[in-house]
Structures are given as C-alpha cells and as structure tokens.
Computed example of a mutant assay.
Amino acid sequence: MNIILFEDLDFRNHLKPLTLTRPIGMLRVGILTIKEKWENRLNLSVSLDTEEYLQTKYPLILKEENVFINSSFLPTPALIDLIKNLKPGQVIASGLEIVAYISDARKSAQELGKAPEIIELEPEDTFSIKHLPDLFLNNGSQIEADFKLITAGRTSQEITDPYTKVYSQENIFLEEGVNIKAAVINAEEGPVYIGKDAVIQEGAVIIGPVSIGPEAKVAYGAKIRQNTTLGPVCRVGGEVGNTIFHAYTNKAHDGFLGNSYIGEWCNLGANTNASNLKNDYSEVKLYDYHTDGMTPTGETFCGTFMGDYSKAGISTMFNTGSVVGVSCNVFGAGFQSKLIRSFTWGGAAEGYEPYRFEKAIEVINATMSRRKIELSEEDLLILSHINEQKITNEV
C-alpha cells in the first residue's frame, strides 16, 4: 500500500497556528506524531497531502494506487483492520466525514459520495484531532497507546540511582542513556516513557501518563503532571500538566502551564504563567482561524496554543484560552491579548507592533545555532509565506 495522509481544509484551519508550519500529520499527540503512529502501525512509509507552500518540505508521493487516510483520524485497531481490507470503490466514513479510500488521485467528497459502498467507522473506534483542545484531550490515552506500541517485546533500561523513588516500575520504560537523579516517578495511573539520552534532574516529580522525548531535560524541582508530553530536545521546569511541547522548546524555569500545546523552537521565560481555568469556571472560548472569531470550546480547562519560533519574556502572563501565532516575541506586564497574530512584537501594556521579518529570522537562526542546527531553505520559504499572509492579517 502507498499511504497518503490527506487534510480536511476545515480541520486544518481549526488547528492553526500549529498547522501554519506543518501538515496535520506532523502534529505530536502522545509520544509520536500522527504520521509516526501510522508508519509504526502499518510498517510502511507515509507521505502527506497538504498545502502547496508546505510541499517542498513535506513532498507528496503519489502512485497508481494509493490509500488516502484523513490525517485528523488517529489509528485504532479497528480502523487499521478496515484499512488493510479496504478495496477500490469502498469508502470508510465517520458520519459525514471521509476517513479513508483507495484512488489514483485525491478525490473530493462529492466524487467519493458516488462510491458503491460506505463502511462506517464505529464511534467507539474513532479518535480524531479536529480542534486545538483535541490535542491535550487525547494526549493521555495516546501516550498509553504509543507506549504499548513502542515497548512491546522490549526491556527497559534499569533505574540505578538509589535516591530515585519509583511507583509501578512495570509501567516505566527507559531508553538507553537516560540519566535520573533523586526524582520521584509515579506510574500508578499511567505509563511513563523516557527517551534516549533524556535527563531527569534532582527533585523532579513525574506522574504518568507522561512522555519525555529523546535528549529532553526535566529541570530540577519540576512538577510534571499527568497527560504531558515533552518532545525531543525540550527543556522543561516548573509545573506542567496536560500539555504537549512539540520539540526543541524551552520552559526551563518556574511557572505554570496546563491544557496547552507549545510548538517547536519556542521559549517561555522565567515565571511565565498561563491560565487554564476562568475564575467563574465558565466555558473557555478560543480564537478559531476558520471562523475568524472567538469560538466556544466546550471545555472548562483550556490554556495556551503557541506556534513555532515564538518567545515569551520573563513573568509573561497568558489568559485562559490564548492563541499565539508563529514567530512572536511577547513580553511586558499584565495579561496578554487572547489572540496574538504571527510575527508580532510587544505586549498588551506596551502595545503590539509588527515583528520585522529580517530581525525575526536573525533571532531564529541565533536560537537554532545554540543546538548546532541551521534554519533550512524549506523552512525559510514557509516562514516567508506566513509573513506574507500576516500582511493581509490572515495569520
């Protein structure tokens, strides 16, 4: 099978700003990205059908016969079984949404509506990422599912530090090179996965389900609560819960972050705090790029969603249900605006202004050089496209 993850345009817009710099299939939820989940479960390479400006970095591989899978849907045993037995002319659907089909080219919903046989995916077998809160809402269960997949038939490295306290050691898995000192790891309510060469510093408390990615670091005294993912090479301290850090992002100091998603190459300064609960306990509204307005989430707890390459200065405060675009530099006293568009510089008290593109790229290059990585030409073109959209106030 040639597997292609395609995107529903509405879902793609709902998931901005995280999807401004990547296809839906590259979002991380649980331990793995959506693309990695499908590749691991099908034991096949997967390509992505996404926006044209992203295709240089994420090329589409099209063959005479392809299995198109909606990238918003997460793999489940039942869905995988249906896909493996899918035949040309059949369509897997979830209500009115197309989940998978076989074709020589991408088909519209109208074209697929003429299919001779619709196979309905049962609700209990449906896990999908269609709106921003779906990421943290599914993170705990996806950590558990990915944990079973990654660790099956393998033996964890031992925890040798005599001053580290462990609960339910059978639910803890360490890859090679993990360094733990005087920490508390509690996996009674869910697994804890710690990737290759990760570091857990003194006094850290980790309560599963939690995933710590390869070369990530949990700072001393950190409190990592349930349903939290630290992607590869992240540095995280303070108190964090029900939150995903995509990769290469720092929150090295104290401060609270909950029910949130922080993109790649971000930095949250010391004592940055993000509210995830309104003081009247009412439903949180969140800016939606698709509707271009504040939209009810249906959730009481909802924090901050930050696009790639954005930074927050020391003691920055984010409101409940905040959206920060790509490559923003936010600082200053008081709560920040609930929507900060891409390439913005400043703060609510001082005022916001456009972030000069050349200066933004200079800062990104300086940030990446600390990890001996360079901004690729493909990423520069993506950022240039986003900046051009910013001029029309779209991102």
Rank of each mutant, 00 (worst) to 15 (best):
R235F: 14
G255M: 05
L257A: 05
V284L: 06
S275H: 04
F343E: 07
G241Y: 08
G241V: 06
F343Q: 05
T304H: 02
S337H: 12
Y220F: 15
V330I: 14
Y261T: 01
N279C: 13
F343L: 07
N319E: 03
S315G: 05
A333D: 10
C234T: 13
F305L: 10
G347N: 09
T243M: 06
N271L: 07
A216N: 14
G321Q: 01
E239R: 00
H253C: 14
F331K: 04
N227C: 14
Y309Q: 08
S342I: 06
P296V: 00
M306H: 11
S322A: 14
M317H: 01
N329M: 12
G258F: 03
I314T: 10
G241C: 12
I244D: 07
N250W: 09
G237E: 06
G325A: 10
S310I: 06
G347Q: 08
Y289P: 04
A348E: 13
Q226R: 15
G255H: 08
G269T: 06
F318H: 00
F318A: 01
L257I: 08
L277Y: 03
N279M: 12
Q336D: 09
F256P: 01
A274G: 12
S337Q: 13
A348Q: 14
V284Q: 02
P296L: 00
Y309S: 07
Y261W: 04
E264I: 07
V236Y: 03
S310C: 13
L230T: 12
S327H: 05
G298K: 02
A222C: 13
P214L: 12
Y289T: 02
C302H: 03
E215K: 15
P232R: 15
W265S: 08
H290K: 03
T291C: 02
S315V: 01
G231M: 13
M317V: 01
Q226M: 15
S322L: 03
F318G: 01
